[in-house]
Design a protein around this nucleic acid. Structure first.
Lengths: 206, 206
DNA sequence: TTAAGGATGTGACATTTGTCACATCCTTTT
DNA sequence: AAAAGGATGTGACAAATGTCACATCCTTAA
C-alpha cells in the first residue's frame, strides 16, 4: 500500500511518515508540503492513497485534490484537518475525496488509510457526529438572534411554501393586513427586499 | 468489542457471526432476524456496534435503527445491504447511522466494524463512488423537457438570485417588459403562480 | 419570395406587495 | 389605576408584479 503525504507543516508530515511507516503494509512513497507539490508528487509516484492537509499555504488541499481528481478519477484522497470544518467537509465530499479525519486522532489514521485503500470512505469521529446535519443541510439559521418572534417565524414558513398574504392570513387566522405588517417587519429585521428574497434566504439557510 | 448482528436471512446472520467471531477483538453478543428483535436485543445487550440489514420483513432496518437511536443517541449502527440504494443511504445518514457497506464485500466488514467502534463512519466501495452526487443532490431538474429555453433559464437564475424585473432587464440587456413576458411564460410552463414560487421551485430542484 | 416563427418590445390593466401611520385590545409592570 | 408594550387590525398609498393583446424585426423554411 503506497501512500503519499502532503502537509505544509513539515513536522506533521514527518510525524505522519513515521507513524505510517511503522506499519508493515504501508510504504510512504513521498512527502510534500504544498498543493503544487501534491500534484507533482502524485503524478510522479501514483500512490494508492494521498494523505493531505486541507489548509495549506498557496493552493489549498481541496484545490489540489480537485485537480488531481480531474486527471485521475480513481485517486484516493484522505484529508486531514486540525479541526472540524463543515464547509470543508461538504466541499471535500463534493470533489470526491474518500475520507476526512482529524489529525489529533493518531490511532485512527492507519486504519483510515487502510479502509480508503480498500475503496471505502472514512469520516473521523467528530465529523461523523455532524454527518446527519450535513446531509440534511441543517445549518438552521438562528432567527431568534435577529429578533424574529415565533409568530413571525410561522409567517416565514408560509412564505417559504409560496403562499400569498391572503392565504397566509387564512392559514394562521389573521387579517391580511396583519400578515403584511408582520412580513414587513421580518423583511426589515433580516434586511431583505421582498418575499422572494425571504424564500431564497429560507432555502439557503435551511 | 461487542457486536450485535441482525439480518432476516438466518444464513447470512450466521455467516456474519462466524466471520466476526474469527477476530479476537470481536465478540458477537447476539443475532436477530427482524427490526423488533433488533430493538429488543439492542436494549438487552447494549452492544458497541449493531450490524444490521436494511431490508427486512416487517420493520425495516432503518425504522428499527431510528427507534434505537431515539433512545440511545450514541448507538453505533452499521448497515449492510445487498445492493446500493441511494435513497437508503441518505436516509441512513440522516438518522445517524455510522456506516453503510455491501454484504458481498466480506473482507471489508471486520475493518468497517472496527472503524465504527472507534467512532468513525465507513461507507463501502460502491457507495463511496456515489457520495459526491448525493452530497450535491444533483437532481437537476430538466427544464428543457418543460420547454424552457436557454434565455428563459437565465431569467430563472436571476429570479433565484432575488432580482427584480428591472434589475434582470439591466443584467440581461432586455427591456423590463420583455423580462415580464418571459417570466410570465416561464410561470405558465412550470405551472407556478409567481416569482416567489419560482425561486422556491428552483431551490427545491437544485 | 413569401410565410412562419422566434425574439424583443410597448401599453394597458388588475392584483399583489411592501410601507406607514395610526387604532384597538389585552396583559404586564410600576 | 396608569403607563407601557405587545399583538392584531385598518386604510391609504406607491411600487412591483403578472397578464394580455399586439407591434417590430430578423431569420429560417417552404
Amino acid at each position: 500500500m503506497r501512500v503519499l503525504i502532503v502537509d505544509d507543516d513539515n513536522l506533521v508530515a514527518m510525524s505522519l511518515k513515521t507513524i505510517l511507516s511503522s506499519d508493515s503494509e504501508i510504504e510512504v512513497v513521498g512527502t510534500g508540503s504544498s498543493g503544487d507539490e501534491a500534484i507533482e508528487l502524485y503524478n510522479k509516484t501514483k500512490p494508492d492513497v494521498l494523505l493531505m492537509d486541507i489548509r495549506m499555504n498557496g493552493m489549498t488541499g481541496l484545490e489540489a485534490g480537485a485537480k488531481i481528481l480531474e486527471k485521475n478519477r480513481d485517486a484516493k484522497i484522505l484529508y486531514l484537518t486540525t479541526f472540524n470544518d463543515d464547509e470543508y467537509i461538504i466541499k471535500a465530499i463534493s470533489i470526491g475525496a474518500k475520507g476526512y479525519i482529524i489529525k489529533q486522532d493518531f490511532e485512527s489514521i492507519i486504519p483510515a488509510v487502510k479502509s480508503v485503500f480498500k475503496g471505502q470512505s472514512v469520516f473521523g469521529n467528530a465529523i461523523t457526529e455532524k454527518l446527519p446535519d450535513i446531509i440534511n443541510k441543517k445549518k438552521s439559521f438562528d432567527y431568534e438572534s435577529y429578533g424574529i418572534t415565533s409568530q413571525e417565524k410561522e409567517i416565514i414558513e408560509e412564505v417559504a411554501k409560496g403562499l400569498s398574504n391572503k392565504e397566509i392570513a387564512d392559514e394562521l387566522c389573521l387579517s391580511e393586513g396583519t400578515v403584511r405588517n408582520y412580513l414587513s417587519n421580518i423583511l426589515r429585521k433580516l434586511d431583505l427586499r421582498d418575499r422572494t428574497n425571504l424564500a431564497i434566504f429560507y432555502y439557503q439557510n435551511q
